[in-house]
Write a protein that binds this DNA or RNA. Structure first.
Lengths: 270, 270
DNA sequence: GCAGAAATAGAATAAATATTCCATCATGGA
DNA sequence: TCCATGATGGAATATTTATTCTATTTCTGC
């Protein structure tokens, strides 16, 4: 056979789809429609999908074979096996909450739930494991881990301080009580974890600069690889939160921060 | 026919399942297995589900009919239509992250992502809208909204303070800087939002008691309807976070708190 | 425009899956 | 103990669904 073996994960299938060369008209329609309806493949019949792509069923069959599958059933098995989470009753309940009155408190909570979930899924997709490992490595030997995060990043920083305490990681939270900057507390063998999102707070940027000048390892937890916080940092961890209204639920940022802290504790223990 | 009409949402199906009277053995097995595998109904065949429930296919068919459906296909349509979000590639990626080494930082983040997501789904399922509305109503007329949450609840309280500021809700965060209690700041027309989880911090309980004695409205955000925090509160909002290791991602708590704050701002604006 | 190759549609067939039916087995009340 | 009622399992059937095949059409290079 001239075709490469069939993909055996959904991810691989997606990539293969994207990397597909130019195709005859009908097969292209198949590719486009499948790519746009990945979540329905598991629960549709050949006839339904073919109708959606506006091709006859036989065209879809040919497409499956071109992709390396034996037939449609073969492809479908991939997607059926991948269905696990996302319990449908949760989706239903969420829809109910949302639609029963846009200004009801329940509807607002539903929106934040949804944006939190999307943020978490984004993080799962885009997490840069290499950067995370480097960040842990970098802070592993630090005497004290300095934490800074102000305004909306403050909850994250303060939770990290709590977690570090529990994990016996020497940490210091720069919270700016009384306007004190405490930047003198940075010692030569320390490290800094700075958390900030656009618009970046000047105090945070200032502390990063200072730590950088002293040659300390700096890890940034921020929303952009190119933002000002990324400049002074050795390692940048990015996380993209989905907003609802003017606010974000911080779910993904907290998950990443927690994972970092626990990994750091594990690294220090060995 | 003696059966009530078939459920036409997944939620309704769940409720009907739970409310089912005593059943003959095989039918009970069907009910149990379906209840425990809701997420596989959409992608399984009669034979597969029957095997899982350890009954012959015909027993499952009878069960479908007892539930008011014409047949299994009828029931399955319900679940197939309900599948939407939860793109499978997210699930795949998450699985990859988790399995590639339990002590890798990426795997830890994946665990926190997963527990965050479960917490959010729990919240969607169990949110008590009536209580939430009462909470908003209760705090609507308050002069100042007092916020307290210490230790691991502190990030939530501090984020609420930030959000209230942005929403022009007069709020005061009791953070205990310098060991001051500030309980004298409670004025007759104020309200208190207290956040605490087991083991409850005594400072929080103390402030609740004081506010209660003064006759102020008290809203509790906690993990149990029967815990000590629920005692002194007029309204109790419960949220159950899924732990990973000793820590929780706070996703659900934050989503609920944010929803409350925005709803409160909306109520005050009218 | 013509031969050859590739692509296509739709009907024919094969496979899988759901559904019904009935003979058998259990259960509870006279 | 026997009958009546209801439950059960499995084989037979009906239906849906996937897959293949082939005649026809559409491209491509010459």
């Amino acid at each position: 056979m001239t075709n490469p073996a069939a993909p055996d994960t959904v991810d691989e299938f997606r990539q293969r789809l994207a990397a597909l060369g130019p195709l005859p008209k009908r097969l292209q329609q198949c590719a486009d429609h499948l790519a746009g309806n990945l979540d329905r493949i598991a629960v549709s019949t050949v006839a339904e999908l073919a109708a959606g792509a506006q091709v006859p069923p036989s065209a879809l069959m040919r497409f499956c074979q071109i992709m390396g599958f034996h037939g449609f059933s073969d492809l479908q098995r991939l997607f059926r096996d991948a269905i696990g989470g996302g319990l449908p009753d949760y989706a239903t309940r969420l829809r109910n909450l949302k639609t029963e009155g846009a200004d009801q408190p329940g509807a607002l909570v539903a929106e934040f739930i949804e944006s939190g979930r999307q943020s978490l899924e984004n993080l799962a997709r885009t997490l840069d494991e290499a950067a995370l490992s480097r960040a842990v490595e970098l802070c592993r030997a630090a005497g004290t881990l300095h934490l800074i995060g102000l305004r909306r990043a403050f909850p994250v920083a303060s939770y990290l301080a709590y977690v570090c305490e529990k994990l016996s990681i020497p940490a210091m939270l720069h919270e700016g009580v009384g306007g004190l900057s405490l930047s003198q507390a940075l010692r030569p063998d320390d490290a800094l974890l700075a958390i900030s999102f656009a618009p970046y707070s000047s105090e945070t940027l200032g502390l990063v600069e200072k730590a950088s000048a002293l040659g300390l390892p700096v890890v940034a937890l921020t929303d952009s690889l190119t933002g000002p916080l990324a400049k002074g940092a050795q390692v940048v961890l990015t996380v993209e939160e989905v907003d609802f209204g003017a606010f974000r639920a911080l779910s993904a940022t907290l998950a990443l921060a927690l994972g970092f802290a626990v990994a750091l504790a594990a690294a220090r223990a060995t």
